[in-house]
Design a protein around this nucleic acid. Structure first.
Lengths: 212, 212
DNA sequence: AAGTGTGAACAAGTTCACAGCC
DNA sequence: GGCTGTGAACTTGTTCACACTT
C-alpha cells in the first residue's frame, strides 16, 4: 500500500470485524455496505471508502462475502497471528483484565502476569503463577512479548513502561491515569474511565440534569 | 456560546484538566500554552483554540493562571457538581471498576451496584450492598442517577441499557463488547480492550514482530 | 518581550454521486 | 437493477501567523 492509511480508519476496522465475525458464525453469506452501516451506525460510503484502502473485496450489484471480508480483515489487522501479552499490576483491575475471556479467542495470549506485592507474587491466577515484577526485564529478554498492559498505581506507570519498551515490547495499553512517554516506534493507548465520564458530564450539564 | 463545539474538543478537556489539576496542587501559578502542549503532546495552537471556544482565560505575554484555568475547566465539564453513578454487573470487572478510587475524588458517586447473580446479591462491597438487578428500574424512579456503567455479559447489555435509559439515565459507559442502541439524547461510550489491542496489532504487523 | 486569541490557510476526513461491473 | 469503488465536493478539524495586550 503506497499511500498512508489514516489512523481513524484502522480504529474502525475492529468494529467492522466484530460484526462480520458474528455474521460469519451465523452463516450469513453476503452483506451490503448499506446493511453493515445500519448495523454499526456508520454511513455505507464510509465503510466502502475505508475498505477501499486495502483492496477491492466487494462485488458490484451484490455486496461483500461475509466470510471473505472477515478473513481479509483478520489478515489486515494481524489477527491470524497470535500475540504475546504481558500484564503488569495484578490488583483488582489487572486481575479483571488479565482474566478477561475475550482475549484468548481473539489471538491474544497472556504469557505473563507481574506484580510487586509480595502477598500476590507466587500465587496462581487461571493456572498461571504471578511473577515478581523485578523479573519482567529478564523474562522479556528470554521470551519477548508483543504487547504490555499496565495496571499498576499511576506513580509506577512510567517505569513499568520503560521496562517494557526496553524489553522489546512495541505496544502498550495503559490503564493508569498517568500520561507516559514511549519511543516513537511504540504504540500507546490509554484507557481511563474518569476521562470518559468527564467528557460525558459536559453534555449532561448542558441538559441540566446535575444536582448540587 | 452560539456556535457548536466539536466533540473532539470536549474529549481533550479532561486531559487538560488533569494536568492543570496536578499543577494546581503543586502550587504552580502560571503556565503558557507552549508548556502545556509540551507536557501533553499537543500543539500550543490547539490548546489556545480549544480554550477559545469557551472564553478568554489567558493573559497576553504571561500565559494562563493555573488555578483560574483549572476552575474554568471544572465549570465547563461540570466537575463542580456531584454525579450519581450506578454500576450494573458486579463480576470481576464491575467490581474493579466500581471500587476504582479515582471516581470519588472527581465528583462521581457510586450510588448503586446491581447484579443478577443470587450468590452476589445481598453481599457487601465497599460497605454498600449489591442489589438485585430487577430492582434497578424501581430504584431509579425513586432516586434517579445520571450515569450508568454496564459490565454485564454482552448478551444482556441492551436490556440493561434500556432499563437505565427508561429510568432517566442520560449517559452510559458500556464495558461490554456489544454495540447497543440508546435514545438520541443519551451519551454513550464504549470501552473494549480487545478493540484497542486489535488496532494496535495492525501497526505491530507492519513492523514484522508477529510470531506464527 | 512574551504569549494570547483568532481569522485565514491548510490538512484531514467524510459524504456525494456516478461510472462501471455483476 | 443493485451495489461497489472512487474521484470530486464538501465538511470538519488543525495549524499558521500576526494583531493585540500585558
Amino acid at each position: 500500500m503506497p499511500i498512508e492509511i489514516p489512523d481513524v480508519v484502522i480504529d474502525r476496522l475492529p468494529l467492522y470485524y466484530r460484526l462480520l465475525s458474528r455474521l460469519e458464525s451465523e452463516g450469513r453469506g453476503v452483506i451490503s455496505s448499506q446493511e453493515l452501516g445500519e448495523e454499526l451506525g456508520v454511513t455505507p460510503a464510509q465503510i466502502r471508502k475505508d475498505l477501499s484502502y486495502f483492496g477491492r473485496f466487494g462485488k458490484q450489484g451484490r455486496g461483500y462475502s461475509v466470510q471473505r471480508l472477515a478473513e481479509e480483515l483478520r489478515l489486515i489487522l494481524g489477527l491470524d497471528k497470535r500475540w504475546r501479552v504481558v500484564v503488569v499490576g495484578i490488583g483488582r483491575l489487572g486481575r479483571a483484565i488479565s482474566s478477561y475471556p475475550g482475549f484468548e479467542g481473539q489471538g491474544f495470549d497472556i504469557v505473563g502476569r507481574y506484580d510487586a506485592n509480595p502477598a500476590v507474587i507466587g500465587t496462581q491466577l487461571d493456572g498461571q503463577e504471578i511473577r515478581d515484577a523485578r523479573l519482567l526485564e529478564a523474562d522479556l529478554s528470554a521470551r519477548p512479548a508483543d504487547i504490555g498492559i499496565v495496571a499498576v498505581p499511576a506513580e509506577y506507570a512510567q517505569q513499568v513502561v520503560d521496562t517494557l519498551t526496553r524489553g522489546g515490547v512495541k505496544a502498550v495499553l495503559n490503564y493508569t491515569p498517568a500520561r507516559v512517554q514511549v519511543p516513537p516506534d511504540t504504540e500507546l493507548k490509554h484507557i481511563n474511565p474518569v476521562v470518559f465520564l468527564q467528557s460525558m458530564t459536559y453534555h449532561l450539564k448542558l441538559r441540566g440534569r446535575a444536582r448540587a
